[in-house]
Amino acid sequence: MAITIGVLAVQGAVREHLLALKVLGVKAVSVKKAEDLEGLDGLIIPGGESTAIGRLIREQGLEDRLHSFHKEGKAIFGTCAGLILCSTDKSHKTDDLRLGFIDMEVERNGFGRQVASFETSLNFEGIDQEVEAVFIRAPYIQSVGPDVKVLATFDGKIVAAEQDNVLVTAHHPELTEDYAVLNYFLDKIGK
């Protein structure tokens, strides 16, 4: 089955996701405006700076189209800042965009600042071997709703979860040569 994955290309680790998908033999396109979502089988919202990405989503008029893409049941994968954007989190009382795709509250920069970035291996539900995980100024998930499945934890904190067609990770799977998590996301499209 030939599939096409979009990578939201307003800010963040866009190039790295496009390259990783290319290695996996998947057609990948940059999404910069609402019409770029037409005909896609899935979308990755990459890591970067969640406030900046949210502001640019609004400025580019993408918010409504992202909501309809989600309601269509298309697969969505939020990594790092993308995790924050996919959340329902309103705990910090800001005007920052939250798309509300997955019922969870998050702690931005939960593992510390840039200098506290680290790499580790994770047990990931649904993947037979440990996965390489790169955490850069990473958030973690404080709590999840009843319909959210926790997929991975680190140091007692939730770092990967899914709800229906939405997958989120606090780490950056595009920054390693371990493509197990990206393949897990691609498998969601086939279901």
Rank of each mutant, 00 (worst) to 15 (best):
A2E: 14
I3A: 02
T4L: 04
I5H: 06
V7Q: 03
L8R: 00
A9M: 03
A9E: 04
G12T: 01
A13C: 07
V14H: 02
R15P: 06
L21R: 15
L24R: 08
L24H: 09
L24N: 15
G25H: 07
V26E: 05
V26S: 10
S30Q: 14
S30W: 08
A34V: 09
A34D: 05
L37R: 00
L37M: 00
L37H: 02
E38S: 04
L40Q: 01
L40I: 03
L43G: 00
L43T: 00
I45Y: 01
P46S: 01
P46N: 00
G47H: 02
G47P: 01
E49W: 05
S50N: 05
T51M: 15
A52D: 07
I53M: 08
I53A: 03
G54I: 14
G54F: 14
I57L: 12
E59H: 10
E59W: 09
Q60A: 12
Q60W: 05
E63N: 07
E63I: 06
E63R: 11
D64M: 10
D64K: 15
R65K: 14
L66C: 06
H67N: 13
H70G: 07
K74N: 13
I76G: 09
G78I: 10
C86P: 10
T88W: 05
T88C: 03
K90T: 14
S91K: 13
S91W: 05
H92D: 14
T94Y: 08
D103R: 08
E105I: 08
E107M: 09
R108I: 08
R108L: 12
R108W: 12
R108T: 12
G110Y: 05
R113M: 05
F118A: 10
F118R: 12
T120Y: 15
F124E: 09
E125L: 13
E125Q: 15
I127M: 11
I127F: 09
Q129P: 06
E130L: 13
E130R: 15
E132M: 09
E132R: 15
A133N: 15
A133Y: 11
V134L: 12
V134Y: 15
R137I: 14
A138G: 12
A138P: 11
P139A: 14
Y140C: 02
Q142C: 09
Q142S: 14
S143Y: 08
S143I: 07
S143C: 09
V144G: 05
G145H: 07
D147I: 05
K149Y: 07
V150M: 03
L151F: 10
L151H: 08
F154P: 03
F154M: 03
D155Q: 14
D155G: 03
D155V: 01
I158Q: 02
I158R: 01
A160V: 04
E162C: 11
Q163L: 10
Q163N: 11
V166K: 07
V166Q: 11
V168F: 15
A170P: 12
H172I: 08
E174M: 14
E174D: 11
T176Q: 11
D178Y: 06
D178L: 09
Y179K: 01
Y179V: 02
Y179M: 04
V181W: 06
N183H: 01
N183P: 00
Y184T: 03
F185P: 04
K191M: 08
